[in-house]
Computed example of a mutant assay.
Amino acid sequence: MLNNTKMKKFKHVGVAISMLFLCSCSASFTYNNLSWLSSFWVDDYVDLNKQQNKQLKKIIETTQHWHRSTQLPAYKQDIQNIKTLFNEGLKPVQLKEHVVFAKKHWRNLLEFAYLPLAELGENLTPLQRKTFINNIQEKIDEERDELNEQAFISRKKDRLEEQLEYYEQWLGKLNAEQKILIKLTNDKHQDSSELWLEYKQQRLNAAKQVFESENLTQSEFIEQLSTVIKERELYMSPELLKINDENLSLYVNLLNELNTTLSDKQRENVNERFDELIDTLDDIIEG
């Protein structure tokens, strides 16, 4: 079962480009207009001059063309594979392999786009670099304040409500046994919010160090910023990586357990959702 992402605002260019699990009537419009939509994200962090805007537009258009022609067909195949797995009988090991494989699409995106993005970063003026870093720091600080304001038990409760809503979107009305399974899994789920904030801060600190270095050659700057852009796990703590894997196993086990409780109607609902995702991707691929 795949996440039904409804994009209200792009948090970064990568998300703006990567539309794997989008399923809505506006998906094609959103994807086809990434160039100007992404500018709203950029404006939140730094003002680009005319030449830099032209450079960013070229990056987005080139990446979008590559993504549409190579990645979206792969996403579609992934969904078809998981649909087949769902109908033939879920096996935890196979399902986890598919989920892990799907995550590699994000890595593919970074591998394709990191160099031109690093080159754009190298073209920023000292003031632009400082503004960019300060604005991202402000966003992280806001997230940290929001996290501190919400008690752990409250976050747990909110997550359970989100999970129940999510599975209802896929299955339809949940029975008592399914609600219990979802609640038990939610109870075991490890909250990694603070660790994710630490990761964001570590990655930002690394970018700041590159931006503020005065003795780097152009090639050294691009190489070091490229590392910050594409090597996400380098800035994740071993604890975060461990929790991510354990939470993924919980999610896979829950899907396997839920699969044994589904009514014929719920199975029909799931297949319809898979078909909607596939149709959406077909629309986007065709442009």
Rank of each mutant, 00 (worst) to 15 (best):
L250G: 05
K57S: 08
E198K: 12
E161S: 09
T70K: 09
P92A: 12
V210P: 04
P92V: 11
Y167C: 00
T5Q: 07
L127N: 10
T70D: 12
L90N: 07
H98K: 15
T131W: 05
G89T: 07
L20H: 08
P126C: 05
V210M: 06
E212F: 03
S237T: 14
E138Q: 14
L160N: 00
T5R: 09
S213L: 04
R155F: 10
E220H: 03
Q71F: 07
K208H: 04
E276R: 12
I59Q: 00
K6I: 08
D47Y: 01
N4M: 08
Q128E: 10
F132N: 00
L117N: 00
Q190A: 14
Q77K: 14
H105Q: 09
K76M: 11
E168P: 02
E138S: 10
S38D: 06
L254C: 01
L262V: 03
D145S: 11
D245N: 15
Y167W: 13
E142K: 11
I222V: 13
K8P: 00
G172N: 12
E272I: 11
K8S: 05
E257V: 09
L124Q: 08
T217S: 14
I180N: 10
N205S: 10
L85M: 13
I136L: 05
G14P: 01
G121T: 01
Y235S: 03
S69G: 02
N49K: 06
K179S: 02
V270E: 02
Y251T: 14
K83R: 13
S38Q: 03
E143T: 11
K139H: 12
T5P: 03
L95R: 01
I229L: 15
E286K: 13
N259F: 07
L127V: 15
V228S: 03
H189I: 05
E61Y: 00
R68M: 03
W106T: 14
E286P: 01
L110S: 06
H67M: 05
